[in-house]
Amino acid sequence: MQANQPSVHIMHADAVMAAGIHALLAERGEFHLTLQERQPHGQAHARVIVADYDSGITLARQLSADRFGAAPRVLIVTQLDKEWQVRTAMDSGVHGYLLQGCSAEELLRAVQQLSQGMRYLAEAVTRCVADSLSRETLTGRETDVLQLLAKGCCNKSIARELGIGVGTVKTHVKGLMSKLEATARTHAVVVAAQRGLIGTGVRLPAPVPGRPGRGSGAMQ
């Protein structure tokens, strides 16, 4: 190991991804590389740690809470690209965010910038974060209501589930629809799924022929 080589520890949970990242960085010869599977002690001396989404967030939170001085920089490499997922990572203290499938050049650039104390976000992620900053965020209770809306619950059911009044539910529904710029309840669920605020596998309620569906603006 050369004295001027930044130490990079790779602890991606996907063994194939970890090996691929190691191979790509090793070709450049610019870093001292360690793998979690073979050299777990490398984490203690790393300037940059490359991790999967869950491991990266957990590590970033631990480092911000437990470590003083020059903590390592955390770079996440993941397929997750939804607004909520990216914001969660950045709010947790992650310094870099790359999407799987990025070029070797972008991976190298990201690791270089983090090793120099900077941050790095993939271009698509940068747009995602920029867009999210221009929108109002949902409150915790609005998110709870949204999750139940996605399951097709009416206001009375949501009120029972959350232990709040129907009037309060209506207020939360109105608030989240405004923040999501949705024209109907079903539209709010679709927008939220597209932004990663809820799972994309939710089954939206189908309208009954001749009757307004739950997606109408009516507050039940």
Rank of each mutant, 00 (worst) to 15 (best):
M1T: 11
A3S: 10
N4I: 08
H12Q: 10
A15C: 06
V16P: 01
V16Y: 11
M17I: 08
G20K: 01
A23D: 13
L24E: 13
L25K: 04
A26V: 06
E27S: 09
R28K: 15
F31M: 00
F31E: 02
T34H: 09
T34E: 02
Q36D: 14
H41C: 04
G42S: 05
A44M: 15
R47T: 13
R47V: 13
V48M: 09
A51S: 14
S55R: 05
G56A: 04
G56S: 10
I57R: 04
T58V: 03
L59D: 07
R61A: 07
A65Y: 09
F68W: 00
F68Y: 09
F68I: 08
G69W: 06
G69N: 12
G69E: 09
A70S: 07
V77H: 06
T78H: 11
Q79S: 13
V86R: 03
A89L: 08
A89H: 06
A89G: 10
M90D: 00
M90I: 15
V94M: 02
G96F: 10
Y97H: 11
G101T: 05
S103M: 10
L108P: 04
L108A: 13
R109W: 01
A110E: 00
V111M: 01
Q113K: 12
S115K: 03
Q116L: 15
R119Q: 15
A124Y: 00
C128F: 04
C128H: 07
V129P: 00
L133I: 07
L133H: 12
L133Y: 12
S134R: 15
S134E: 15
R135G: 03
E136A: 15
T139I: 05
D144R: 02
D144K: 10
V145G: 06
L149C: 01
L149W: 02
C153V: 07
N155G: 07
I164R: 07
V169K: 06
V169I: 13
T171R: 14
H172C: 03
V173H: 00
E181G: 09
V189R: 06
V190T: 14
V191M: 07
A193P: 00
L197K: 00
I198Q: 04
I198G: 01
G201I: 05
G201R: 10
G201Y: 09
G201S: 14
R203N: 06
P207N: 03
P207Y: 09
V208Y: 02
R214V: 07
G215V: 04
S216M: 08
Q220T: 12
